[in-house]
């Protein structure tokens, strides 16, 4: 994290020379602040700052996207297959729309049913982010607890759990999710459940590995010696010390869940049209690319990429601080 290095390519940190400074430089007072300074981190790490900005924007649009969109995302305008205006004209058009009250242009064009692409692109996070966030949080909550139990109580039952989770991981997540949705029906609830199931094994594995690493630590035995029940040892002592990898994984998982949600829509196993959803938009626009109507798929595609990148960057940034 510190940019200065000496000519030897080695950054001297206090730990390096710990043995030389320990006794007389030992912390005598207890620090009052123990949290990571996010504001400072935001200023110093550009990638992290970029990720945070995108995530914040995505969350903002999830709440207000449909409200601020110039056209109703699900209502045809009558202007079919309009190409987006020339990028050089955008500032002029912007001024006309906002200050002179002109009819808003179709910034990203319209599709061949006449739906405004821009309105749909900024309204989509409401669907995508909702599904992805709920699914990622659920899979983390359930996966972490199952992983804790699997690592803490190693017995026949938890072995079965682990083999089941291996089996689930053996299939590509996309195929599994598609089958699950196909079997249960195309509803938002079922998509959330399918995503939760496919992402759960990651959290089970991560938490179990961390728990196994914590088990030989002295504080676990000490917690037993104090008189805790096995469940109290597992949930009060081991769990909080095994959460960090899952928390880091969460951000990345949200990104991937967005991709999977769109992917499912793309193949027709996701939300129903005409819901504003990036994958669905790409699917509808894909056949038009050959006709030169590139704008129908490109804009939602860029939106997906940016969002996933944003979540991954946040996860990466946090990981560096916790390891």
């Amino acid at each position: 994290m510190n940019e200065t290095t000496n000519p030897l390519g080695h950054t001297p940190t206090p730990e390096d020379i710990d043995q030389h400074v320990e006794p007389h430089m030992m912390i005598e007072t207890v620090p009052t602040k123990r949290k990571i300074d996010l504001v400072r981190k935001f200023k110093e790490e550009r990638l992290f700052a970029f990720g945070v900005t995108i995530v914040a924007l995505a969350i903002f649009l999830a709440f207000f996207g449909p409200v601020i969109s110039p056209y109703d995302p699900n209502f045809a305008t009558g202007n079919v297959s309009v190409s987006p205006p020339n990028i050089l004209d955008w500032p002029g058009l912007f001024i006309d729309t906002v200050f002179l009250g002109a009819e808003p242009p179709h910034w990203f064009g319209t599709d061949n049913s006449g739906l405004d692409i821009f309105s749909r692109t900024i309204s989509a996070p409401r669907t995508d982010l909702q599904i992805a966030l709920i699914a990622a949080l659920l899979s983390m909550a359930v996966g972490t607890i199952l992983g804790l139990l699997a690592g803490f109580f190693k017995n026949f039952l938890t072995e079965i759990l682990m083999r089941t989770s291996d089996l689930l991981q053996a299939f590509p997540v996309f195929i599994t999710a598609m089958i699950l949705v196909a079997l249960s029906g195309r509803s938002t609830g079922n998509i959330v459940v399918a995503l939760t199931i496919v992402y759960m094994p990651i959290f089970i594995r991560l938490t179990r590995a961390e728990v196994l690493g914590q088990m030989p630590r002295g504080y676990v035995e000490a917690a037993r010696a104090v008189g805790n029940s096995e469940f109290a040892v597992a949930f009060r002592h081991v769990l909080p010390n095994s959460l960090v990898p899952s928390l880091i994984q969460l951000s990345t998982t949200v990104g991937f869940a967005i991709l999977l949600t769109s992917g499912l829509s793309f193949v027709g196993a996701g939300v129903r049209p005409p819901t504003a959803e990036w994958g669905l938009m790409i699917a509808l626009g894909a056949p038009q690319i050959i006709l030169g109507e590139w704008w129908q798929s490109i804009f939602p595609g860029v939106a997906i990429s940016l969002t996933i990148f944003g979540f991954a960057a946040v996860g990466h940034g946090l990981e560096e601080d916790y390891r």
């Binding site: 002295g218 504080y219 104090v226 010390n241």
Partner: peptide
């Protein structure tokens, strides 16, 4: 357990 206690070898390791 309240009456029978233990102090461990490595203090850092034995504290949560």
């Amino acid at each position: 357990r309240g009456a029978l206690q233990i102090v461990f070898q490595d203090p850092l390791d034995s504290l949560n």
